[in-house]
Design a binder for these strands. Structure first.
Lengths: 250, 250
DNA sequence: GAGTGGTCTAGACCACCCC
DNA sequence: GGGTGGTCTAGACCACTCT
């Protein structure tokens, strides 16, 4: 009496989404092209409005499409910035009056935004890494082509950087790494921890992220040659704007 | 006559989602706890079913919650595997009969699954990187604690590895890197390119990903000491299962 | 069997964009 | 002004889970 277990057909909204996705990957729908809208899908497939919305939501949540109010849903593009790991932190770059970020924008103009500098009580995990309860915190946002692409928060042990330009909005030529060198603790070693997740609402807002865009989180710890941690930098990157590159020998 | 531009209240479904998110971050709702379901939200806020669903969908798409059919919506956890970049590829590890992956599971048992080996015509980008039209392709899936965590596809120039154990399902002790060494082209340099995006349906299936989980994509190219590329390995990682770590000196 | 999430219909009003 | 996506209601049937 048992029914043979037939593999279920996917629901309509999935089949519609699959069809649109295939057309995107086939190049039939290209970067910036307008997808069939809710009304078009309702007519074409004889479905209710909510079902058409559901199909489009799939592609939006996959990051393949972006909705524009009052206009339509459009195919999305991916033109990333290449961020180099090891190389970009080499001594040549921060030893000669150049800020690290220079290397990232690769000739494209970039700006810094929403700079905040404050002395704060360290959160538990920050305190553990830096071995310090009080920290100077530097927050800022980076933009390329007027588009926000990264949020960054740097933490420094308070006792280490007190009185230096690191506690000022303008850190001077060479940035914080040049200042750390002047303090006798030039960074000698870096550890970067990288993960990815969906953004929280604050990050989504500050980075102006459309739905379906994950963020890459990089926690970079800089150590002086004696092994003391001198900076913890947490970076939140728009994953649609970045490719990370790491080079190393066997 | 102009209305002063009042900042709009967020829609109900957003406010409900914000409330639940706050309770999760406050620790009031913890890993694995059950969230209020659709019916509970309908009653509590006097809203329609679709609106309650929409609120829960926000958290699901953020990767903070996982729906279980017929049961409820649950708070999600993040217990990652630590994958080391530079260090894990050091000569000590692949020079002595140990496969690379050993280092990743950190003592936890791991298994390999769905191994496929084939000679194929290279896709355009693969052909460009490896400078070869014909490639041997090795596909497999990695599982930790019986849970799929990574898909990997390795490409080798066909003329280079023809006749070696790299073209067999079982590559022997030390894995493909030991075989490349025997062929006179031990990997001397690696480049890893890292990005993050939402998974496509195939990846979502093979990795058994709940909604709101991005994947990390690593494209690793291995070069012999003469600069020739000898392997291109594309890895698709469940972002909820991994933290990448890269160490380097200034 | 009762409760849960998954899918779907058929409406409605709104803000926004483009013509 | 007409079309678009954004939000919301009030229903319905289904498959699945738990007990």
């Amino acid at each position: 009496m048992s029914e043979s277990p037939v593999p279920h057909e996917p629901p309509i909204y999935r089949r519609i989404a699959d069809g649109l996705r295939a057309r995107i990957h086939a190049g039939e729908l290209r970067d910036g092209d307008r997808l069939p809208g809710e009304n078009a899908l309702m007519a074409e497939y004889a479905i209710a409005r909510a079902t058409a919305r559901q199909a489009l939501a799939v592609l939006i949540n996959e990051g393949l499409a972006v909705p524009k109010r009052g206009s339509g849903v459009y195919v999305r593009q991916f033109k990333p910035i290449r961020r180099h790991g090891a190389r970009r932190l080499s001594r040549e770059q921060w030893g000669q009056g150049r800020a690290i970020w220079d290397a990232d924008a690769r000739g494209r103009p970039f700006t810094v935004d929403r700079v905040e500098v404050a002395l704060e009580r360290a959160a538990e995990d920050v305190a553990r890494v830096l071995d310090s309860d009080q920290v100077w915190v530097r927050r800022r946002r980076y933009l390329v082509d007027a588009r926000p692409v990264q949020l960054a928060t740097s933490y420094f042990p308070a006792h280490l950087v007190e009185g230096s330009a690191i506690t000022l909005t303008d850190t001077g030529p060479g940035g914080v790494y040049a200042r750390l060198a002047e303090l006798g603790v030039p960074p000698a070693h870096f550890t970067e921890e990288v993960r990815a997740r969906m953004p929280n609402p604050r990050e989504s807002n500050l980075l102006d992220l459309p739905g379906g865009t994950p963020v890459i989180v990089i926690a970079r710890t800089a150590y002086a040659s004696d092994g003391r941690p001198v900076e913890l930098n947490e970076m939140i990157l728009d994953s649609a704007a970045y490719v990370l590159q790491y080079d190393f020998d066997a």
